[in-house]
C-alpha cells in the first residue's frame, strides 16, 4: 500500500537537494544557515516517523533558531535572464501550459481512480491519504512531462525549486508550526478558558445578540486559533447550542452551517492562517507579508455581516 510515507520521502529528497544546492551557492551571504535550515527540515520528512518525538522537537527548535532568530539568506544568481525567458516563451507558446495543467488534471484523476483501486482486496493507496498521494504523483508526472518537453540540464528542477523556496524562506514551515501551536492550545485547554470568559462577560439577552455573539465570536476565535475547525466546537458548545438553539429555539442546521462560514471570514483576516495568508505573500514575493490579508479584509467583514443577517433571518424560522 502506498501511503503518505512515500510522499514524505519524496519531500525529504527534494529538500535535501535544495540544501545541497544552497551549500554550493557562494552568492548567498548566509549560505550555511540556509543549508542547515533546509537540511533539518529534510530530516524531519525522512526520519520523524521513526524518531522519538522529543528528538523531532529538538530538530524543530534548532530550525527556529536558525530560521527565526539568525535569519536565512537568498542567493542572487538568476537561472535564466528575462531575455532568455521571453525567447523561450515565444518558442514554446501555449505548450508551456501543458505541464502546469497536468498537475490539477492528474491530481483529480488520481483522487477519483485511487480511492477504490485495489489488488486482491487490498487498497493500493490508503483511502484517507488519497488526495496527498495524488498530488505527489501529479507533481512527478508533470515534472517528467516538463523535462521531456523542455530538455533542460538535469539539475534544473532542484536548482529552480531552491530559487522558489528561498523566496518563500522560513514562511514555508510556518503552517506546520501553527498546527503544532494549535495542538498545544488544545492540550492546555485554551478553548475552554475562552468560552468560559465569553459566557461570563457577554450579555446574551436577546435572540439577535445571541446570533451576533456566535458569528462574530466564530470569526474572532478563528483569528486567534488560525483555523475555523478549532474554533467551531468551542464556540458552538459555548454559545451556539445552549443559546441560539436551546434557549431561543434556533435551527441547528442553519446555525452550524452559517456559523462555520463565519469562521472562514476570520480565516481571511489572520496571519495565524499562514498557509492561506502569509505563505502566498511570500510566494508572490510581496514585500508586505500582510498584503494578502489587507486585500481580503473588506470582503471578509462584509461577508461576516451578510452571514449574521442570513443566520438571524433564517435560524429562528421553523
Amino acid at each position: 500500500m502506498i501511503g503518505l510515507e512515500a510522499v514524505y520521502w519524496l519531500m525529504g529528497l527534494l529538500l535535501l537537494g535544495v540544501a545541497v544546492a544552497s551549500a554550493r551557492d557562494a552568492s548567498n551571504p548566509r549560505r550555511w544557515r540556509t543549508t542547515a535550515f533546509w537540511a533539518l527540515w529534510a530530516l524531519t520528512f525522512v526520519a520523524s516517523s521513526h524518531l522519538p518525538h522529543l528528538v523531532t522537537g529538538v530538530i524543530v527548535l534548532a530550525m527556529v533558531l536558525v530560521g527565526g532568530v539568525a535569519g536565512l539568506g537568498q542567493g542572487t544568481r538568476e537561472s535564466a535572464g528575462r531575455a532568455a525567458r521571453e525567447a523561450s516563451a515565444a518558442r514554446w507558446g501555449n505548450r508551456l501550459f501543458i505541464p502546469a495543467l497536468v498537475i490539477p488534471a492528474v491530481t483529480l484523476l488520481g483522487n477519483w481512480a485511487l480511492k477504490s483501486a485495489a489488488i486482491g482486496g487490498v487498497h493500493l493507496v490508503d483511502p484517507k491519504q488519497v488526495t496527498q498521494v495524488s498530488l505527489g504523483i501529479a507533481t512527478l508526472v508533470a515534472l517528467v512531462v516538463g523535462m521531456a518537453m523542455l530538455r533542460p540540464p538535469a539539475s534544473a528542477p532542484v536548482v529552480e525549486a531552491r530559487r522558489l523556496l528561498d523566496a518563500v524562506g522560513w514562511a514555508a514551515v510556518l503552517p506546520q508550526m501553527l498546527a503544532a501551536l494549535g495542538a498545544l492550545f488544545a492540550v492546555a485547554g485554551v478553548g475552554r478558558v475562552v468560552s468560559t470568559l465569553a459566557e461570563q462577560w457577554i450579555p446574551l439577552g436577546s435572540p439577535f445578540v445571541a446570533v451576533v455573539t456566535y458569528t462574530v465570536g466564530m470569526a474572532l476565535f478563528t483569528m486567534i486559533m488560525g483555523n475555523a475547525f478549532a474554533a467551531f466546537p468551542v464556540m458552538t458548545a459555548g454559545i451556539g447550542l445552549p443559546l441560539v438553539m436551546v434557549r431561543f429555539g434556533g435551527d441547528p442546521v442553519v446555525m452550524a452551517a452559517v456559523g462555520m462560514l463565519s469562521g472562514f471570514c476570520g480565516t481571511l483576516m489572520t496571519p495565524m492562517a499562514a498557509n492561506y495568508n502569509i505563505v502566498p505573500a511570500a510566494l508572490l514575493e510581496l514585500p508586505d507579508k500582510n498584503a494578502v490579508i489587507k486585500a481580503q479584509v473588506p470582503t471578509a467583514l462584509l461577508l461576516l455581516a451578510a452571514n449574521t443577517a442570513i443566520m438571524y433571518l433564517f435560524v429562528y424560522r421553523r
Binding site: 503518505l4 510522499v7 514524505y8 519524496l10 519531500m11 527534494l14 524531519t44 520528512f45 520523524s48 516517523s49 522519538p52 518525538h53 522529543l54 528528538v55 523531532t56 522537537g57 529538538v58 530538530i59 524543530v60 537561472s79 535564466a80 525567458r85 521571453e86 525567447a87 523561450s88 516563451a89 515565444a90 514554446w92 508551456l96 505541464p99 502546469a100 498537475i103 491519504q129 498530488l135 505527489g136 507533481t139 508533470a142 515534472l143 516538463g146 523535462m147 523542455l150 533542460p152 534544473a156 528542477p157 532542484v158 536548482v159 529552480e160 525549486a161 522558489l164 523556496l165 514555508a172 514551515v173 503552517p175 506546520q176 508550526m177 498546527a179 503544532a180 495542538a183 498545544l184 492540550v187
Partner: peptide, 30 residues
C-alpha cells in the same frame, strides 16, 4: 515532545511544496 509530535503529524501540510520543481522549471522556460 508535544511540539515534535504535532510537527510530525502535520507534515502533510507541507506536501504542496512538491510542485516547486516543475513550476520553477516552467518559469525558467518563460
Amino acid at each position: 515532545t508535544a511540539f515534535g509530535k504535532a510537527f510530525t503529524e502535520s507534515r502533510y501540510i507541507a506536501i504542496v511544496w512538491l510542485v516547486l520543481p516543475v513550476i520553477g522549471l516552467l518559469e525558467r522556460a518563460g
